[in-house]
Design a protein around this nucleic acid. Structure first.
Length: 262
DNA sequence: ATGGTCGAAAGTCGA
């Protein structure tokens, strides 16, 4: 069974329903994993996503911030929702695919502006979140996919200027070390770099603050799709849909579309 | 080095 699984930080699903339509006009997606839905479960636009063909909806949301969802054309089982920090933030939801593979959708904390946990508690929160994810990941014994907005660009080629961003949250050495530890805990395969190896540039996010995101191209690769090593033979492609950054009223992130034979 | 733009909300805060 060929499955197209997409990950997208949508930056409010209620503000951007048109983007879902445009994505589906561009690519047939079987399972769409969203981050930053920014709505509580009881205000999730179920009817409109049903109309788009997603009949099986799994959400965990909260007022104002965060929120993740999995929209599917095929029946899935809810697996779990983790609150690794036990602070009520809606940052993880997982389902079970028909093949038995677990699919984890994660929104890692952004971490604020100052890369110092004593001056900026949000930065410490981000590192602690990653540590707890790492402890959890190390115990995984089943073939799994984990994807989402990890809010870290690990490689020099994942940002527009490695040296300029070394002290900018999302690319600091301590964050990269934390992400590498998470990856190593399960030997996760980074499909972005499997299909587009460094030193090619690869970005998934461009700031809203640029005058012209495309001309300046000051991007970062913050979004990722990883799979268990034993699933790598089933991974067919990973597409980063860069043109979506130029759509009307865009998200600042673009969709990643992974294709698996599962 | 700074500021730039978004969404949710009704202050500003978080990204």
């Amino acid at each position: 069974m060929s499955l197209r699984i997409a990950s997208w930080n949508i930056n409010s699903i209620r503000a951007r329903p048109h983007l879902l339509e445009q994505l589906l006009d561009t690519y047939a997606i079987d399972i769409l994993c969203l981050q930053e839905t920014k709505c509580e479960d009881n205000s999730f636009p179920l009817a409109s996503v049903n109309e788009l063909g997603f009949r099986h909806i799994f959400t965990t949301g909260q007022r104002m911030h965060h929120g993740v969802a999995i929209l599917s054309r095929i029946p899935l089982e809810l697996d779990c929702r983790h609150d690794w920090q036990a602070n009520g933030e809606a940052r993880h939801i997982a389902v079970r695919l028909p093949s038995g593979v677990a699919l984890h959708n994660v929104y890692v904390p952004a971490g604020g502006d100052i890369p110092d946990r004593t001056l900026n508690p949000k930065f410490g929160q981000k590192l602690d979140f990653l540590q707890r994810m790492t402890d959890w990941s190390a115990a995984i014994r089943e073939p799994s996919i984990i994807l989402g907005d990890f809010n870290i660009a690990p490689l020099p080629e994942d940002v527009w200027d490695h040296k300029a961003l070394l002290n900018v949250v999302s690319h600091t050495p301590v964050e990269v070390a934390a992400l590498n530890a998470l990856q190593k805990s399960h030997n996760w395969v980074d499909l972005g770099r499997h299909f587009v190896p460094a030193p090619q540039r690869l970005y998934t996010w461009w700031s809203y603050r640029a005058n012209d995101w495309e001309a300046s191209n000051r991007g970062r690769r913050l979004d990722h799709v990883w799979c268990s090593p034993e699933l790598l033979p089933t991974a067919r492609s990973l597409t980063t849909l860069v043109p979506a950054r130029g759509w009307q009223r865009p998200s600042d992130h673009v969709p990643l579309i992974a294709e698996f034979d599962l």
